[in-house]
Design a binder for these strands. Structure first.
Lengths: 193, 193
DNA sequence: GTCTATAGGAAGATAGAC
DNA sequence: GTCTATCTTCCTATAGAC
């Protein structure tokens, strides 16, 4: 489907990461994407449609930048940690996505239309984490009495909380990463040496 | 200082809770507060000034509505849980404050001026929680090897993450509360029966 | 599909009286 | 300090040509 649209969506993520959903001006997006405002309205109907499509786009590409690290992981427990730490990295693309993701979650509070896709992405991410926890349990790397889905939901929600604190300047990145690693230990039981 | 200003600030919190920071229209705020738009500009200079003052106001009154429940708590560990659960209640005032708080944090990502007060409030809340963890440890209700400040920072960040999911419709309130209780168990060790 | 140009309206901000 | 009335700016959205 028209890569011109994708171009606009990618630009939209950048603009949102810079100014927030609330601060997105169609004209600024047009400049960022190198197209006219009219073209944006042609493809996305109106501003609300643009935002909605951008959210879906973010949800879709929300995974991906952790893949390499996850493949390097030596076991399921390390995979889980890498999956979670993936959101806490000082890399342009990660920052961009994290900010956009936070914006979309915040926007969903005031716009019911955004909630469906958001909940879907959240569930999908959580289930990935839960699956890794189950694998860790099978490998004897996690307490068997922890409920994988509960722990996964707590850990992913914690990542969001830490990420927001990091991005808003209340928490240093290294400390955030350390806290997250500590949470994995608390949830799964300290790693057997 | 002029209670008219406080009246406006309180109205601003309500409007922000309803429509978000970006959705705050000076005219709507004027209607909500029962004053003219001119008066708002008189007191707050411009829209940006109004937002800044409102978010500062939110930081200040960020605590308070948990006090009763905390007093009823039977021990330090229960106090901690009540402090945290205080943010996850379906009560008008709590929703309002939680949404406004989330908006403040989201806004701080794009506005460096907001970061100082935000970090201060966050630290204060975290330290309250850490103190309760220390008390719980003294009372034999929490593992002694947990680092109070680390656990407190994780738990409060988790509350923010869960709260955001709840408010954005990705998570039911009861489940959020249950997950939080589970996190306290995971962090402090299961409560000795 | 894409642009230039612009209509139209919403919202921020101010003037001036009381 | 507070209001009514109004100015001005900015931004979404569309018309119409290519």
């Amino acid at each position: 489907m028209a890569d011109r649209q994708v171009l606009i969506l990618e630009a939209a993520v950048r603009v949102i990461a810079r100014n927030g959903v609330r601060g997105l001006r169609v004209e600024e997006l047009a400049a960022e994407a190198g197209v006219s405002t009219a073209l944006i309205y042609y493809h996305f109907k109106d501003r609300a449609g643009l935002i909605r499509r951008t959210l879906g786009f973010i949800s879709d590409r929300a995974t991906g930048y952790t893949d390499e690290a996850i493949e390097d992981a030596e076991d399921a427990r390390e995979e889980l940690l890498e999956l979670l730490l993936g959101e806490l990295q000082d890399i342009e693309r990660v920052r961009e996505n994290s900010i956009a993701w936070g914006e979309l979650r915040a926007s969903a509070i005031f716009d019911a239309d955004l909630r469906g896709p958001l909940a879907d992405s959240t569930r999908s991410w959580t289930e990935d984490a839960a699956e890794m926890i189950r694998d860790a349990q099978k490998a004897g790397l996690a307490d068997l009495h922890v409920e994988p889905l509960d722990a996964a939901e707590r850990l992913t929600a914690l990542v969001e909380g830490l990420s927001e604190r990091w991005l808003s300047g209340s928490l240093g990145l290294e400390r955030a990463r350390g806290l997250l690693a500590g949470a994995v230990d608390a949830e799964l039981g300290r790693r057997p040496a």
